[in-house]
Design a protein around this nucleic acid. Sequence first.
RNA 1: UGCCCCCUCGUUCAACGGCAGGACAGCUGACUCUGGCUCAGCAUAUCGGGGUUCGAAUCCCUGGGGGGCAGCCA
Length: 571
Amino acid sequence: MTESNLESTAATSEAPSSSFLRGIIAEDVSTKKFGDAVIQTRFPPEPNGYLHIGHAKAICIDFGLADEFGGKTNLRFDDTNPEKEEQEYVDAIQADVRWLGFDWERLCYASDYFPQLYEWALKLIGDGKAYVDDLSADEIRKYRGTLTEPGKNSPYRDRSAEENLDLFQRMKAGEFADGSRVLRAKIDMSSPNLNMRDPVMYRILHATHHRTGDEWCIYPMYDYAHGQSDSIERVTHSMCTLEFADHQPLYRWYIEQLGIFPSQQIEFDRLNLTYTMLSKRKLLQLVKEHRVNGWDDPRMPTLSGIRRRGFTPGALRALCAAVGASRTNGSTDIEMLEHFQRDDLNHRANRAMAVLRPLKVVIDNYPEGQEEFVEVANNPEDPSAGTRMVPFSREIYIEQDDFREVPPPKYFRLSPGKEVRLRNAYFVTAQSVVKAADGSLVEVHCTYDSASRGGNSPDGRKVKGTMHWVSTAHALTAEVRLYDKLFSKADPFDFPEGGDLFDNLNPNSLETIVDARLEPSLADAQLGQPFQFERVGYFCLDSDSTAEKKVFNRTLPLKDGWAKIEKKAGA
RNA sequence: UGCCCCCUCGUUCAACGGCAGGACAGCUGACUCUGGCUCAGCAUAUCGGGGUUCGAAUCCCUGGGGGGCAGCCA
């Protein structure tokens, strides 16, 4: 599958919005906080699902900021939980990061550090900083206390270093059952920060890991693995989302106890978009329950979904640059994304004419059997895109919306007696209509002005309306899929007691038109090539297309000023 | 009711003790062979109360509001 045209080249310099993160790094560079070490960041996804738009922000920050300061970024898979992680996700994530326009310095896996992490655990045990606890998960929870009450020490907390060493080695050796013991850091069970109440470092899990297979049956927890992985990679700025702020003291504690490279964690707000749900777990559920057609369903906010939909890396990068980063949690208007997407496509997409809901128009005074070709600009925004020839004939299709028997005020499209322009072709005037027995409109009869060829009348006569059209004899019939928001509420999580997130699913998020009529040049459309169907929207060929049947996805509709006027008049 | 974080136009991000500004959205209008694009203009904000200061969005105190945290998930 080639998607060359949809992808702009590597990420360059979208005007970076200022950000407190930039300020911190600039400060650290000027004070030489890390000596002469190069700025090093990492993007650390867990391979337990597909990347989504929210991750795009993290990627732009991690890669973008490092690049700005001449630094490097690793792609590191945070693969410490074999029960949820799969190679499929590892592959998809790499493809998505590349698609977004970034390339990593090193490809890393937390699982590569399991031996080192194990050695360090041994050291902490030897130093009396960690112990093996035989309490059950349930008991550990009870001993932890609550948000308002301190926890209490485990009865196993004061085992000797020798006993802990022996037990931990036997945990690794596979002598104990899942869940029977854990290794915990010995910190402070009365800390107001729950993360510091002797956090679990290792659990026993006899599960096959997607990379290390059955080599290990003990796996490190996130807190113990992440900071140390950062340190191993000499990450200077480990940027993560706000919910990890409470973990920062623990992040530092491990690094200090171990006396290793002092990576520092900095938190920023995750990207939230209105009408969009970015919970990996819930996204998985949408897929598993077949509420959408897979991870790359064009309605999904996954990078693979919006890519198939026709969204572009440049637009995503522009959005991320525009929203910046802060420590405030909020929700960005989806319109912002749509704006940057339209802006990107407006410059790059070739135009074409396509009629989604066809209405036949017969030009009575046009010679029967005649055909001709009019020259049309491929992209008025970009002369270098060249021109193409589009066939015109006596019978054409126009959009049903472009004709009204009884025109409302300010309507300047086709209506009886009204003259309009067929884009790049001729002026036509509607003369009469033909209706079926049930009163429905069958076709419109017009006359044309042969002197107006190309779209202008030599007498300087003006028309208000210009519409797109497709010659019936030359038309390509295709399926067109119109997508709308997946959720109908700005906040998908806003549902009444006893309700469900999925109650907010938009029942009209997909409308399929099976018999749209397209200009013949669209037969050559390539996967990944963006088009603007003039006056309608941005589209791209879908991968479901076959030699016999083309399928197009609507990326986004064009802004519709008329709809606004009409709505206002109706209101 | 413990700890942590956060409160600036409708939304989002700036202003780092010195005239509150940009983007998106909105509204007017101009232009137009896409009711698209573009252009011009308009409107809208520092959560409240104290304090420090010549001067506070910014610093301090206090009240209010929002968010996060009690996985052997990340």
